[in-house]
Design a binder for these strands. Sequence first.
DNA 1: CCCGCATCTGACAACGTTGTCCAGGCTCTA
DNA 2: TAGAGCCTGGACAACGTTGTCAGATGCGGG
Lengths: 349, 349
Amino acid sequence: MPETPRRADRPSAPRYGNRPTMKDVAARAGVGLKTVSRVVNGEPGVTPETERRVQEAIEALGFRRNDSARVLRKGRTASIGLVLEDLADPFYGPLSRAVEEVARAHGALLINGSSAEDPDREQELALALCARRVDGLVIIPAGDDHRYLEPEIKAGVATVFVDRPAGGIDADCVLSDNFGGARQGVAHLVAHGHRRIGFIGDMPRIHTASERLRGYRTAMEDAGIAVEDAWMSLGATDPARVRRAAEEMLSGPSPVTAVFTGNNRVTVTVIRVLAEQSRPVALVAFDDLELADLLQPGVTVVAQDAAALGRTAADRLFRQLDGALLLPERIELPTRLIARGSGELPPAD
Amino acid sequence: MPETPRRADRPSAPRYGNRPTMKDVAARAGVGLKTVSRVVNGEPGVTPETERRVQEAIEALGFRRNDSARVLRKGRTASIGLVLEDLADPFYGPLSRAVEEVARAHGALLINGSSAEDPDREQELALALCARRVDGLVIIPAGDDHRYLEPEIKAGVATVFVDRPAGGIDADCVLSDNFGGARQGVAHLVAHGHRRIGFIGDMPRIHTASERLRGYRTAMEDAGIAVEDAWMSLGATDPARVRRAAEEMLSGPSPVTAVFTGNNRVTVTVIRVLAEQSRPVALVAFDDLELADLLQPGVTVVAQDAAALGRTAADRLFRQLDGALLLPERIELPTRLIARGSGELPPAD
DNA sequence: CCCGCATCTGACAACGTTGTCCAGGCTCTA
DNA sequence: TAGAGCCTGGACAACGTTGTCAGATGCGGG
């Protein structure tokens, strides 16, 4: 007997902790497998009586369709990935939520991951999402080389970059007008009589940071002011470094009378430092803050609309997925200067 | 000729926009399918030379393993779901990030969704996540009946509730000491001489809201103070309602001299209202706020540790997944009173 | 009474991966 | 030099679903 038939041995795979499958439902309802599939997916061609029996069996067994298998068969996962810097940052919460809402409107779920501003981690995350076959990716880049995504994009993964542009590849991106916003903010200080204006921002390798610095420089140039090196500080946004930077430019040989801060994390530290100064120092900040209007004085900000960034990017993503063959585009959203007091303080020498 | 063999017709399935599969890699490398699998998964039993050839083919084709298929075969998705109320709320950002970090440490990805405080949407989301066969669920409940999860939990989906307990089922939950925190906060106001103290909170059907109200009532009772109905207001947290509530209790026949606010959204509105009052009104708030220390006066808060909530819950989740047979437990995390000025103002009648 | 048609149902293969098992080649020893 | 044992590689089935297609059933008309 060389070939005993044997059947139910070989307990190779896991069966998901014994979840019922369509086969089980079919057996219980006394119908074929495909009929169950039809009922579950609301396809036509099933008599009401049969449908009832199937529904009953589904109910009784607590069946829930396995989307993994479905995905494997259909090729679309109805999920998109979002790679951002840090979900805990108040700037990214609303952005993420906006992306989620658009995804939801298209019946998709959102998988997100934080890169912690680490390019390697960004890549690891993005590729892990691709391995899960997300339909699309929204990426807030940490690194500046995204050629690793080329095969993925070629394979059909819709991709949109937000907040910062992609590096090394041609892709959609949705940005705030960082340059223009910073320029306007600094010009606002100039208009209120300041000439010695400091700039404290994030690491220069970050696109938004360098753009805002460029806006600062341009505004100063526009005003015919020669910028001193000591007035500019770019680097990590941890409180210790920012504090040191602020204190230095406030106490140097030609101390600044106003400060422009390059993002919300820098701002909160600078506000603390300014509160300790004996003389009033003007402040305009990039990014709005909750409660900014209730401080004394209120904080004048250049606000960007995080939710709009997310919404625009996600819209664009789904337009790609709907098959519209679009050329990569760079969409820039305007910023808004909100005067609340701190930016209108006159210079105090 | 009844059975023409035919092969490459029947273009039924999608092939993921023509992504290479292991089969393609195998063909190109001139090896068997399983050998590619071994290389991709770092399994032993492949000569360095063969491995090199396979790696080369992978590189050349831009192959990336399809995790959907892998999941189908292995039964674990290495992903967990997080259902929360609103990612854009500064309380949930850090919580979500903490869950993500724990997941990452276990090699899992995080899928999250916002329920917008809608029980139906919570259920829809949670079940969609189950259909994707997430290994576990972390849920911040919007509803108070979670029996719909029973079949899922029985089928092996690890589940932990956070911030609010589950309803109708016995499951792990991780909570802040809402009662104790509120009680301590109100007692703090009493200790500074207040007797007419108001409470403004969220809708009473939300567990945290009712617990905090209970803390308020108990603290008042402890102090032997009879609470008037006009001093308590529970309802939606939109600014309009909160403003009205605050203004009413500040102007009634026995106006309050201090207010205890039940969550961060309420707090920001109340701060605005109090800033408009001619007399100083004391304030203690549940939940910490960025910049709370920089307001005049600084806002005294009962702080809960959102990140710790998330971390604890996720840890517990993965302990369940590691197979430890645990009895459902209720873990309560302490709150911390941070005095900054607003809670230490004396009563001004 | 039988045929054709429409309607409903089910068998089967395929999606891309991994677990099992066996075949073949090699080395090492007696 | 033959045999035992190890190592490498590959054929095959299975995971749970859906697309294709053909079979079954019932009905009306010729």
